[in-house]
Nucleic acid binder design. Structure first.
Lengths: 187, 187
DNA sequence: TAAAATATGTACCTATCGGTACAGATCGAG
DNA sequence: CTCGATCTGTACCGATAGGTACATATTTTA
């Protein structure tokens, strides 16, 4: 019985991928075991709360990544305009031009919405608030900045849906490009 | 054993609601039975292909509704501008300001994407094409019209995700209003 | 190196999954 | 009224779901 060197944090990305590809209900313990290489023993040792705790941990890890990589620069970075550019580039890379689903968005459309309501709300609220802060720092009014930020975050989610349904990554890039142009034009 | 008066077409809306609320995998036969009042006998009589045929029938019914109610007026209606206005109003009503999920969009984010790939692609392709046709009839170039149509359809999907995640129908109305303003401004 | 804490695999549990079989009930056509 | 077609409820199927129990390994600590 070889001891696995993996930490709890190491399995979160693998876990996230399983939830992304199969959804919460479709992510069976068998699939999770196969994807992570961890047996039920290890899994329930790391996540005593079972599947629900696994999904919550994945959501928390995602939230942490976005906070570090995207929200913080928008909110506190020296150059708001550069932070916005970085956000669009990071989104294209993270969502692989629409090939990769946004787990939070997917959970929002499924009946996981209620179970993880707080995490979902916080994720999008933080994103909109951070982007709005950057836009305000560029001279926009609070109301205008908030509305524009909502539109951009919504555009990203819509672009993922469209790109996946049409099987076309170009539409993702196109929509993000338009959103970027629209939000940077008036600055 | 009382004979049910329901036709196959009558159960499709109920079926659709179950898939919308619980997703494909979450829509168990038990839930379907409870929601429709039909036992397994009747269910498999109407849909010999089981769950997959039920979902396909629901998608076809949805497609038919949008074709009749939204695409046709955009494409062939006498007044393209009025058809666009009607589209936004119909979307707000149909998706109940973001309270109700778009089944096609939800399927696109789940692993049902591959199983129903053709239906999902057709739904969005038809929507974009119809809206683009209306915009062209209002004088826009083909390329410009197509890009604008994609942006609007994407905005609707993004608005649903955001509204559900934030638990706020106002953001749906706001985003659709902005999309409507943007698309009708240059006409 | 002994003991305590941390991992891990396996066997097993009950509940439910989608689907099938089929006997009855109900119906319309003649 | 009869007969065949159309419905519908129930019992049942094997597979799999998430989860628990626990003995066995491995590390860490003292």
């Amino acid at each position: 019985m070889a001891k696995q060197v993996s930490e709890r944090a190491d399995v979160l990305p693998l876990l996230g991928e399983v939830f992304r590809e199969h959804g919460y209900e479709g992510a069976s313990l068998a699939r999770i075991t196969a994807a992570t290489g961890l047996g039920k023993g290890s899994l329930y040792h790391f996540f005593p709360g079972g599947k629900e705790e696994m999904a919550a941990a994945v959501l928390a890890e995602i939230d942490g990544w976005f906070e570090r990589e995207i929200y913080a620069p928008l909110r506190d970075g020296a150059d708001p305009a550069a932070a916005i550019d970085h956000m669009f580039a990071a989104c294209d890379a993270y969502f692989r031009s629409g090939r990769r689903v946004c787990l939070v968005g997917a959970f929002a459309l499924a009946d996981t919405r209620d179970r993880f309501a707080v995490a979902l709300r916080d994720y999008f609220a933080a994103w909109v608030a951070a982007l709005a802060a950057a836009l305000q720092r560029l001279g926009r009014t609070e109301i205008d900045a908030h509305a524009a930020a909502e539109a951009v975050v919504g555009a990203v989610q819509g672009a993922i849906v469209l790109a996946r349904a049409l099987g076309d990554t170009a539409v993702f890039t196109r929509l993000l490009g338009e959103a970027r142009a629209a939000v940077t034009a008036l600055v």
